[in-house]
Every structure is written in structure tokens, then in C-alpha cells.
Design a protein around this nucleic acid. Structure first.
Lengths: 370, 370
DNA sequence: TTCGCATACTAAATCGATTTTCTAGGCCCC
DNA sequence: GGGGCCTAGAAAATCGATTTAGTATGCGAA
């Protein structure tokens, strides 16, 4: 990662010298303890006009004619007083805030957290900051937050697992968005590939009776993933058995949801040797339910999750799962958004960017017993 | 939680009518598709001065003399054009941004994530937004980020598990901060109490040989927690055995760290029946190491964690742990920060706020075998 | 000697909203 | 009939930085 000091900010042309100064400015900061210095007072102290000082500090071509003597005086004084241009004033003048909004369902569950970390990495590197808002699946918040973010003058919005209804006057990138909305770029996983990886693997190690846990209806991935599963199941000659299909219910991001569904599946009496959960969190709950039912994972029932959240590898048994490149998806989202912000007239932005899943085999799955 | 529409913003006096309008403005937004309307153009359309319109819209007392006819015309036109005051311009004028900065070590590990969700809940409710930055334990970022946040005109900073070195010109609240720094309010756990809860419990169920995993040296809690442990151990007549003491090493937030330390502890040959890990993530790694060593948790070795992160309850075995009220700590941090922002002259802010831990007994601990 | 051009700056407009200070007319009351 | 007060609103300053359009001086060249 490039250093913050070399942070690229295109339009404003970060004054390099001022930046450098920050790193080791104990003296200057002690001279001007707190109150920030304005350009005006700085100029006054120098006996120059604010315009002159601004031109020099920002290294504008128009400062060509200012002699080095004067320039040096300006830089020296700016350094002495630890002058930093007021960001808000600059934002107003340039009509740029270098800020984007990120909308997530929830803070701190595995999926969104990983995406967020990818987003942050890229944004910060490029000199952008971001506001995070979590709507916790409440309809009114999903509706309001984008508007409030726009009021806050964000230059773009990244929506994570949050379908965008309306088009907005700024670029929008949606991670796991599936609807085609004007002005929205969707970052989507290759769900057919994901379904094929999981089901083919289970099939190959002998499973023929496979149960499924679908996602909540509000989750953007639920539908496309389910369609992919049905398709691949048919291809394999194992059409989905509706009696072996459960569905997560509720907004919680706790494994309890998967636990409950699995208990029902087990109680139904319908036999199965493998379970494909909507995500790792549900898989974790499922494993517990299976255990409590007196069966073993993977000996009696194989469980495969989805996402590969950080803790998946450290469950006991560790989770076999379909990895989404979540961090990378966040990075791509940020990259794409910044590109679109930098190039607003380019209407021909990509409508969708596809990323590929990966099968991670661990301990929670095994060959079917014979 | 109060609705967003009733969001309290003290100084600016959110114009209630405009807020209301937003909720169901399909017509107006279709009339003025994209470009936001400025006060000036709005006033021009009405044949009035911007000043007049501003006074009316903001319901200033000075608008007393404006007749209702005119007021109604103004509101109607504002609604029709979906006028919303430019936030940046307002910020400049008022010298307020309603934005705070949150510094965390890392995005998306259990500890910080929970704190963050508490912070967000309270801030958003109060009409504040926040920037998140994660320093990933790099010294230069820890140094730079607070400065950059200040440049971004945040009105306060919350530092999570990130010691504040210098005092800053805005209020700072530090979650798990322990250093006494001018201008910083520390939110701290009652570590002696925590140590007593854990050790007393282990002692009571018969454990006499207890191993410990200390935290990384960069973690703010490492020192105070360790001191508390030593003290309580002595009280119980079980002085800490340095051969049974390991230490997390490295910046990763993965259970691998705990796994590695525990392998070393097991390899040392020194016997122990219980292990007190620095946090849940380390405890998870520890359990795996113990298993791989051919012993059972809790039958052979009891493991107790710290924090009670979301996944602790769903480990196998589920983790006994010392719960920190992390979400609550985030809320308190946000509350405290906003109080200090609202009341900047009050130098007599609390230096520290203490919160209490709780012992959560689950499956990873048990009585010592006899 | 005077035009042209470079030098070294400054004045003023601008970004958008807010707020304090003014007008200007009308009416009441002494 | 004039001072005081209310009504209805406008002008101008302000927040802080940027940027465009000048200005004033000096010097070389025609």
C-alpha cells in the first residue's frame, strides 16, 4: 500500500510540502496550540493577499511569476503556523467532498465486515473517506439512508447486500446486487459456478440426499443462488426435494436461525446425508442442531457453508464452504465507484462485474457412508 | 429507537417540515430530476431575497414579521423543487460538521465490530455521521489518522483499543484506553473484577494449575488485565507460573495466534487443567491446539475466553468467557463524546467510565477431574 | 519614445447558506 | 404632525478557500 503521504488526490492536488510537514511537526504544533489558522490571517501576517498565498501553496501555474524569495517566505510561515486549508471551505468551493457512503445491513457480522475492510483499504488509499450506515433490514432506513447520505454530499454510494430501488444522482455500486437499476453497477458472484462447485463435490463423494437452507427473502443473494442450485441439481439428476428445503427466518445474523431450521429439517423425518447452508453462520447453527440430534458431522451428515467468513476455518469441525472473495469484492466495489466518480460523463460504465467462487474443503464434509 | 424523521439535531434545528416531506416525495423528485436547487435560485423563483427564504425555512424568530401568505408560498415552492440546504455550506457557516471519527485497529474482527455497532446506533440517532479508519497496528497510521480526521473537521474522535498519545483539539473518547491523557475520556472494563470472576470460578470448580495467554503488547488491555490476574492469583494462593504463561504474537486477529501459543504451552510439558485466554479468538485457537494434542475440552483442559464475541456461543464446545459489554461500551463512548461536544467549555468531563464484566459459563469449562 | 511583454501581485467574484443590520412604508398616539 | 413602532422584506457581511480578471511597475525592442 502506498503511504498516506503520497495519497493521490487528483483534483485538489495535495500540497506535498504541507503533507510532508505533518509527519514530524512537534515544534509548529506547539507554537499554535489549537486554533487552526486561516488563509486570511496567514496572508495578513505575511503582508500579502490571500489570493497570492493560495496560489503559491497550491502550486498553481498562476504562481509562476511569484519569485522564490516570496514563495519561500510563504511556505515557511505556513509551516510555522501549521497552516492547513479548511476542508469544508474547499469542499464548498470545489463541489467535491471526497466522501462516499456505504450502506450495509448490519455492522459486525462476518459477511459485511469483510467486504467493508476491502472497501476501506481502497478508499483510504485514494484519499476518500466514507460514512457507514447500517439499516438492520428496516424498510424505512433502507429508504432514508441513501437520501441522507446524498444530503451529506457523498460523491457515490456502495450498497452491500442491499438492493437499490431508485436510481440516484450519484454513482452507485452494489455488492451482491442483482436488480438492473439505472446508474448502478452490480458486483455479483457467479452463482451457477458456486452451486456447481458445491453440488458436484457432494455428488462426487457420494451424496444423493441433500438438504438445503435457503436465505432470507430480503437477502439479495437468496434468489439467484437458489435458482442456480435448482438448475445444477437437475443437471445432476437430483431434483431438489422440497421436504428437504428449509429457509432462514428473521433478521438476526446469529447461528440460531440455522439451528432452528435444521432442527425442523431433522424433525421432518426425511433422511439426508448432506446439508448445503445459505451461509457459514447458518452452517454453524446447523452443525449444532445436528449434534444435538445425536448425529455426527461429517460422519452422518456433511455440512457445507457459504462465504468463508473468518471464523469458518476455526470451527470444530472446520467448515467446508464456498468462498466468496469478499474482501476483493469490497476492493472492486471501491475501485469501480471511484472510477465512475472520476469519469462522471461516462454513461457506459459496466452494469455488472462478476467474481468467481472457490470450493474450500475442510472437515465438515466427507464421503457418504456405505 | 426514535425515528430518523425525529432525529435530534440541536444547533441547526432540523426543519421539520422539510424532513417530513422527504418521506413521500415522488412527484417533486420527478419534477426536479437531479440537480439540487440552491437557496438563491429558489428565492429568485419566488421573487424574494435569499435571506427571507432562509429565515422562513429555518423558522427563525426573525421571520416573525413575514405574513403567512408569503411563508406558505415559500414552503410550497421549496417542496415543489425538493429544496434541501447544502450541507457543506451550512457546515462552513456554522463551523459544525456533525461528523466524528472512529479509529479502530481493524475492521471486522469481533471485538471492534461490536463496539462499532454500539457507536453507530447512538451517533446516527443523534444525527451524527462518522468516518471509520483502521490502522491495522501500523505506527504511522496511528499517528496520521487522527490528524487527517481533524483536517476533515470531525468534531470528536472515538479511539477503540488504540492508545491516544497526544491530546487533540477536539474531545476524544477511548474505548479500552488506559493512559491518562489530557482531554481523553477512557471507557474501561473493571479488570480486577473480570479477573476475579474468571479465576474464582476456575478455583471453585477445582482448578489449581492454570495457564494464561497474555495479549499482544500493543493491545491496551494487555497490561491492566495482566496485573489484575497476577493480583487475584496471589489472593487465591495460586501465584502465576511463568512457565504456564504464553503471549499472543503478531497483528492478525485470527485464532492462529492462540493456536500457536497453546501448542508451545502444551509442548513445554508443564501440566495444567485450565487455560485463561486473552480473548475469545485466542481461546478458539487454543481449543483446536488442545484437541490436536489429543486432549479434550473441557474434560482434560478447561478453556475460558474473554469478550464474548458473537460466535463464542456457537463454538463447539461453546465458550465459557468473560463478557465485556462491548456494544454498550460503544454506546457509552458515543454518548459521552456527544455530551462533550455539546458542552465544550466543560473541562470537568469524566476522565474514566468503568463498565462491569460478566461471567458466562458455557461448555468449554468444567470441574477438574479427580 | 512608446508598444509589448514579463513580473509581482491584488481585487473581486464565487461556492451556498446564514445572520445581522438596514430600509421604507404604514399606522397609532400624543 | 412628528416620534415611535410594526410590518415586510432586502442588502451586505460572513464562514474559508479558490480563481479569474485585473493593475502597476519595469525593461527591452522597434
Amino acid at each position: 500500500m502506498s503511504s498516506l503521504l503520497a495519497m493521490r488526490v487528483r483534483l485538489w492536488e495535495t500540497p506535498r510540502m504541507l503533507r510532508k510537514k505533518v509527519a514530524g511537526s512537534h515544534i509548529s504544533s506547539s507554537l499554535s496550540p489549537n486554533q487552526p489558522v486561516s488563509l486570511k490571517s496567514l496572508a495578513e501576517g505575511l503582508g500579502l493577499a490571500p489570493a497570492t498565498v493560495s496560489l503559491v501553496i497550491n502550486r498553481r501555474p498562476a504562481a509562476r511569476s511569484i519569485p522564490n524569495r516570496t514563495k519561500d517566505r510563504i511556505f515557511a510561515e505556513a509551516k510555522r503556523l501549521n497552516y492547513r486549508a479548511n476542508f469544508v471551505a474547499r469542499s464548498l468551493r470545489h463541489q467535491r467532498t471526497f466522501t462516499v457512503g456505504v450502506v450495509v445491513p448490519e455492522i459486525g457480522e462476518g459477511y459485511g465486515a469483510l467486504v467493508l475492510s476491502g472497501i476501506e483499504e481502497h478508499l483510504l488509499e485514494e484519499g476518500y473517506f466514507y460514512f457507514v450506515v447500517s439499516h438492520r433490514h428496516r424498510a424505512n432506513l433502507k429508504e432514508e439512508y441513501p437520501k441522507i447520505l446524498l444530503e451529506r454530499a457523498v460523491e457515490g454510494i456502495i450498497a452491500v447486500d442491499t438492493p437499490s430501488e431508485h436510481s440516484l444522482p450519484v454513482p452507485v455500486v452494489s455488492v451482491s446486487g442483482h436488480r438492473a437499476v439505472e446508474g448502478v453497477t452490480n458486483i455479483i458472484l457467479d452463482h451457477p459456478h458456486a452451486a456447481r462447485l458445491a453440488l458436484k463435490y457432494l455428488f462426487d463423494v457420494g451424496h444423493r440426499k441433500i438438504a438445503f437452507i435457503r436465505g432470507q427473502s430480503f437477502s439479495s443473494d437468496t434468489e439467484p443462488r437458489w435458482r442456480a442450485i435448482e438448475e445444477v441439481s437437475n443437471e445432476l439428476g437430483l431434483p431438489v426435494n422440497s421436504k428437504l428445503t428449509g429457509e432462514l427466518e428473521g433478521v438476526s445474523s446469529s447461528p440460531v436461525l440455522g439451528y432452528e431450521v435444521t432442527k425442523q429439517l431433522l424433525a421432518s423425518g426425511e433422511e439426508f446425508t448432506a446439508l448445503f447452508a445459505f451461509n457459514d453462520v447458518a452452517a454453524i447453527g446447523a452443525i449444532r442442531a445436528i449434534r444435538e440430534n445425536g448425529r455426527k458431522v461429517p460422519e452422518d451428515i456433511s455440512v457445507i457453508g457459504f462465504d468463508d467468513i473468518q471464523s469458518a476455518a476455526f470451527q470444530n469441525p472446520s467448515l467446508t464452504t464456498i468462498r466468496q472473495p469478499l474482501r476483493r469484492m469490497g476492493e472492486i466495489a471501491a475501485e469501480t465507484l471511484l472510477k465512475r466518480i472520476a469519469n462522471p460523463k461516462n454513461i457506459r460504465h459496466p452494469k455488472a462485474i462478476r467474481v468467481e467462487p472457490e470450493l474450500i474443503i475442510r472437515e465438515s464434509t466427507g464421503s457418504v457412508r456405505r
